[in-house]
Design a protein around this nucleic acid. Structure first.
Lengths: 269, 269
DNA sequence: GATACGCTTTCCTCTATATGGAACGCCCCG
DNA sequence: CGGGGCGTTCCATATAGAGGAAAGCGTATC
């Protein structure tokens, strides 16, 4: 019996993403998972759960006991909390996850939609390593191949990977990438630029090699909220024009958000 | 006295081996969690799940879809795998967990059963830090208080924290603890002793301060399988006699295992 | 190209299952 | 002492969920 909505006006727990609708025939499971979602916010009492989720105390109690018996919840002095099983599962999931494989389908989608080459890469110390790419439909292709390594400060992908760093680090890496041959003015310009990228959460980068390659890169965050990889689209500046820029950036960011979600990012906390 | 809310934090662990039945009225949930348990071992196909768990394909499908819709599972090329939600929950659970609080009830239980003082501590670099203690019922008490710091190589608790280290590290820490004033023979003896402790997974330690304090310490492992804290019982060698030793060590180890389970340790993988 | 197999997905029927109300024991607080 | 909060148990009932059947789909086999 669904007690419909008498009490749970403000807080109906389930946020169905991207229009995916509830699977029919799993009330019990869904309610149990709703409980998990409540417990995320910290220890909570069974009676409060019943109220918040609009179920009877009996039901809340039964579900909570079931979850506890499987170690998904643990009992603390002030209610139910996340249980040891989740620590295990979390670690296992972390071990099993493969950023590249997770990102792949999103990269393909982005490439399909925009027509551009799509890349992902991660940071290796002071370097940026290209991990995978999807060749776009455009005639012109960007040559960077998976495995390539470039100073992290001088690629779009690399700069996206640096967005969480402080300005001193930006400066250091920039100077190192340029082998020390930089003027204070150039450093200043670089830092200012990065500041702008950080504010927008997106990097627009023109290759310094003079080959007219332009890219838009966005960081991807893991469950801990840290930047783990970055995604970018790249092409000749000729194609990736200023009037396209905003729309494309928007799309890259959306892809990055989706991938972030798929590797466990839960948004800024 | 030492009771308080001991019992409730500890999961009574209904082993989920095959007989899944523990809490009545939660078939759906239990089956879904059974699915999670199967997925732990790596990606698996819905049809295989149905076979393995003895449910209809329809049911397996329904549950798997439900779990997927909540991001507890993700779809990969070769079946269903652990989903992003677990990465989140894992991280959150890790953040929320407080080793000392989790360990407390088990410490009280151990103290009740043995009558000895019980300690827990963690490693801080080359030091061992006492985090909490439960004063036993015995007249004689060990003075070490929470907050105390001692060289990690020269306490029972500390040695338990070192059991995963290699012999070179044991040697280094021992020499440092002794401020370099050691003979090669002493070093050799220490390493041999540690080797024995490691083999048994338990440390029997006689204080080197000549105060006749003896302790039995055992490491506690987290979800990653790493030693995170250690537990020990301590008393005058007068009480903690050789004939009691095995029985007590057994009890300390059992406590350590339970605490390990409560902080997410899933056994050697 | 036709046939066959295995997997996913949908539909539908029937009952085992999960539900909520009522009631009990417990502890804390005024 | 009585009221109000909590967790827990019991039970009759309706409904949520199990599973059979069969339609899609993709991939191997000949």
């Amino acid at each position: 019996m669904g007690r419909r909505d008498s009490e749970n006006i403000m807080q109906d727990g389930d946020d169905r993403k991207d229009g995916t609708e509830a699977v029919k025939g799993t009330q019990t499971l869904m309610r149990a998972l709703d409980i998990m979602d409540e417990v995320i916010d910290g220890p909570i009492r069974a009676a409060d759960l019943a109220r918040k989720l609009g179920m009877s105390k009996t039901t809340a109690h039964r579900l909570v006991q079931a979850l506890k018996s499987r170690n998904y919840l643990s009992v603390t002095r002030d209610g139910f909390a996340l249980g040891p099983k989740l620590l295990q599962l979390g670690v296992l999931a972390t071990e099993q996850i493969d950023y590249v494989r997770v990102a792949r389908p999103f990269m393909e989608l982005l490439s399909d939609r925009t027509g551009f080459c799509v890349f992902v890469g991660k940071r290796e110390g002071d370097w940026s390593r290209h991990l995978d790419r999807v060749t776009g439909t455009q005639r012109l292709r960007v040559a960077t191949a998976p495995g390539d390594r470039r100073p992290v400060a001088e690629t779009g992908l690399g700069k996206a990977l640096l967005l969480d760093e402080d300005e001193a680090t930006w400066e250091r890496l920039y100077v190192e990438a340029k082998d020390g041959k930089v003027t204070p003015a150039q450093i200043q310009a670089y830092v200012t630029e990065m500041r702008g990228h950080k504010a927008r959460g997106e990097v627009l980068h023109d290759s310094e090699l003079g080959d007219g390659v332009r890219s838009i890169a966005v960081p991807i965050r893991d469950a801990k909220g840290q930047i783990c990889i970055a995604i970018s689209i790249a092409s000749a500046a000729h194609y990736l024009t200023d009037d396209l820029r905003d729309g494309l950036a928007e799309q890259v960011m959306r892809s990055a958000e989706q991938i972030s979600g798929a590797v466990g990012y839960a948004g800024p906390r």
